[in-house]
Each structure stands twice: as C-alpha cells, then as structure tokens.
C-alpha cells in the first residue's frame, strides 16, 4: 500500500529523515512513534505531499507519488488542531471534500456524521463544538470521500484522557470495519501500543525498529528502544507491585 524507499529529507543542511524504508500493507494500522523533533511529522508530510523528499521514493499502490501534488494523492489527513474551517458548519466541513470532487455530498456527509455520533450537531459551527466533537468532525471529513490512506498527526494530542480513550476506540473500529490503511503519529507510547498493528520507532530521523507491539516489547533491537519501552511500562509495573 505505502512503500517508502531510502527517503531522505534535508532542511538547510539539517538531515531530519535519514534513509527511511517503510512498507505498510493495505488496511494496516501503523504508528510512527517518537519524541518531538524525531522527524515523524516530517515523514507524514512527505507522504501527504506537504513536503518534497530530498531523495528516495514514496509509492502508494506501486505508483510513485514524489511529484504528485497533495490534492491528487487521495490521502485523508487528521490534524492535532482539527483544522475545521471556522466559517463552515460541521456538515459543510464534511461535505467540503465531496463538493470539490463533484460528488453529491449531503447524504454521505450526514451518514458519516451519524456514524460518528454527531447527528445532533451537523448544523453547529466548530466554535460551538467540544474538542472531542471537533475531532470527530475532522475524522468524518477525512473519511467521507473514501481515501485509501488516512494520515493522523497526533489527532488526540489536545484531548483529555477520557476523550482520548473513547476516540482511540472509534478510530480503531473504523480501521477494522472499513479496512482503511492508517498511519498514526504519536509520542504517547501507551497509545501506540494499544492501537497499532505495527509501530515504527523514530529517533533523530532514523527508524530504530519497525515491528508489532508485542515483538518490540519482547525484543527491542537497541538500547534506545529498550529505554523507551521501560520508561513507558515502568509506572505500570510499579502500580502492579503496589496492588499485589
């Protein structure tokens, strides 16, 4: 589905992505995990077309998309700050990508809002919706035109824990039911382990390990991954000790 080969990205002599190789299968949920500045958002931007690659290739369905503009890549994207258009209602926001493609919009948009539990809010402007509701609208907008891939740049980063857990479930269900390939960016290790089929751990622009959560937990390939796992599960282990 997504095949990234030897990708490098350089900003003013600063190489932020170094020789990235990543193969993501159709319908898979892959998380890019790393701390701030590790290059995960830049990698996402290279796939979405917001950034051009310095060298290497990006394929979607075996088609080289390096020079395809982002509006023609048929990729959906959900941002951390939702980026709902403030001058449009929830319904108009969801209809927007369909209208651009001249697809009859209202019914599909309403169905998508219903599916995400927003049928009562279709006429509300973004400023009248809560953070969770806004992110659901953003998700509906990204899903409504059936893109092959959905890229998510820390979509739940601005939400509280309860909402985050709730939406994690919603996103995972959509991934399973619709079989949409999802590439998810987060720095939250627990979130990555709960949601992902596979996780790519990034540090300073280099993929440290790309494997299933179970394999990463059991067999971390280097000290960086080991430390990362330990830091995440230390509190859980401490908590378990206290309880038992």
């Amino acid at each position: 589905m997504i095949n990234i080969q030897n990708l490098n990205k350089v900003f003013k002599n600063n190489c932020v992505l170094k020789d990235i190789n990543l193969k993501i299968n159709a319908g898979e949920f892959v998380t890019l995990l790393g701390s701030s500045g590790s290059g995960k958002t830049t990698l996402l931007n290279c796939i979405s077309g917001f950034e051009t690659v310095s060298s290497g290739n990006v394929y979607i369905d075996d088609i080289l998309i390096n020079s395809v503009p982002s509006n023609k890549r048929n990729v959906g994207m959900v941002f951390q700050n939702y980026n709902l258009f403030p001058h449009m209602t929830a319904l108009a926001n969801v209809e927007f990508p369909l209208k651009l493609k001249n697809i009859p919009a209202t019914v599909s948009a309403m169905e998508m809002l219903d599916k995400l539990g927003l049928s009562d809010h279709y006429n509300s402007y973004p400023d009248k919706l809560s953070g969770g509701q806004q992110q659901r609208v953003a998700l509906a907008r990204a899903l409504v035109y059936n893109p092959k891939i959905i890229l998510m740049d820390e979509p739940l980063g601005a939400l509280d824990l309860k909402l985050r857990n709730e939406l994690q479930l919603v996103i995972k269900n959509i991934n399973k039911q619709e079989k949409i390939t999802m590439l998810y960016v987060t720095h939250d290790i627990t979130e990555a382990f709960v949601m992902s089929d596979r996780i790519a751990i990034l540090n300073e622009g280099v993929i440290q390990q790309f494997d299933t959560p179970k394999e990463i937990y059991k067999n971390p390939v280097n000290q960086f991954v080991k430390d990362l796992i330990q830091s995440a599960f230390y509190h859980i282990e401490e908590l378990q000790k206290m309880i038992t």
Binding site: S48, G49, F50, P69, S70, N71, K72, R73, N74, V75, G76, M77, F79, N83, F85, F96, P97, L100, K101, R141, A142, Y145
Partner: peptide, 8 residues
C-alpha cells in the same frame, strides 16, 4: 494544507 489534502 487541509484544503489541499481534501482535494482542493
């Protein structure tokens, strides 16, 4: 960017 990625 959002407008572009949505197909505009």
């Amino acid at each position: 960017k959002t407008g572009q990625i949505l197909g505009g």
